[in-house]
């Protein structure tokens, strides 16, 4: 086993989850110009819903995943209804604070119900590492990477070919023009928040078997946010590259600098990117409707 390739591969596994959180942020930002700070809580909600489905209702993991997607989508729609829609005429900063507030409310509501006791669920794939080439990886991490890749591919197809996907892209470019086509812009907002939040929930139920379930899972918002910034905040491929970059650098920094440095890595990446490449790796000058 060689150290650096090993760190890179496990960094990619963590990074693919950051990418999922980041894509959720990017979708909502592109549609509404708002950074959803409740995105971390959709991860937490996803994990807790997974735990409920699997350990309380004894449902199979795959069924749990589907229910989690639906449940966290609903959370996104609620955040949109409570924090975004009533504040349409307020400055973006107000709306962003409102998403933060809703996130805190969700987090503390969960804490009220289930306290701070950590929970666990077991996934379907083994946590016994297997050797591929010179690196060791657990099947459950492989499954996560595969799932994220699949979801991203589905998203690309969705935005490229489906009517709703095209309507979402159109609305992101010009809300007025979209409404002139007959697109209900509030409906698109609601569906976009649902989709973005569902991706967060998926990240939650995927990571839960590995790291356990507690109300601090939402902290994954930080690396997810940095991943989105690295990618330019408006690009799905950018969010993926950003997520993987943050995941890999965290691992390398954690080993070669110090283990406590790991949590600092996203911030270092964030500051570096903002200083060197303010528009991110995939950012382009804003070009909306002509």
């Amino acid at each position: 086993m060689e150290l650096v390739p090993q760190l890179i591969v496990s960094g990619i596994a963590a990074g693919s989850l950051y990418a999922l959180v980041a894509i959720g942020l990017v979708l909502i930002y592109k549609a509404t110009d708002i950074v959803n700070f409740a995105q971390g809580e959709s991860v937490t909600v996803g994990a807790y819903m997974g735990w409920l489905c699997i350990t309380q209702f004894r449902l199979p993991y795959f069924v749990a995943v589907v229910l989690v997607l639906a449940g966290s989508a609903l959370v996104g729609m609620i955040v949109e209804r409570v924090a975004y829609r009533p504040l349409l005429k307020s400055p973006p900063f107000t709306v962003i604070l409102a998403t933060l507030a809703v996130g805190l409310i969700i987090k503390n509501a969960i804490r009220l119900v289930w306290q701070d006791t950590p929970r666990t669920i077991s996934g379907v794939f083994s946590a016994e590492p297997i050797e591929i080439g010179s690196v060791l990886i657990t099947p459950e991490r492989l499954a996560i990477m595969f799932t994220v890749a699949l979801v991203v591919a589905l998203l690309v197809l969705f935005f490229r070919f489906s009517k709703l996907g095209k309507a979402m892209r159109a609305t992101a470019q010009s809300q007025e023009a979209a409404s002139l086509m007959g697109i209900s812009v509030p409906g698109i907002f609601s569906k976009t928040w649902a989709l973005g939040s569902a991706l967060g929930g998926l990240a939650g139920v995927l990571i839960a078997p590995l790291v356990g379930i507690n109300t601090e899972l939402g902290a994954v918002l930080v690396p997810g946010f940095v991943a989105a910034v690295v990618g330019g905040f408006t690009s799905i491929p950018g969010a993926i590259v950003g997520g993987i970059l943050v995941g890999v650098l965290e691992n390398l920094g954690g080993v070669f600098i110090s283990s406590s440095f790991k949590q600092v890595v996203p911030f270092v990446v964030l500051i570096t990117v903002l200083m060197v490449l303010p528009t991110g790796l995939f950012g382009k000058p804003l070009r909306k409707a002509v």
């Binding site: 095209k166 892209r169 470019q173 010009s174 007025e176 023009a177 002139l180 909306k288 409707a289 002509v290």
Partner: peptide, 12 residues
């Protein structure tokens, strides 16, 4: 309506 300034979806 064909709006003033056209309002095309520039990136589509």
């Amino acid at each position: 309506l064909v709006p003033q300034g056209r309002l095309l979806f520039a990136e589509l």
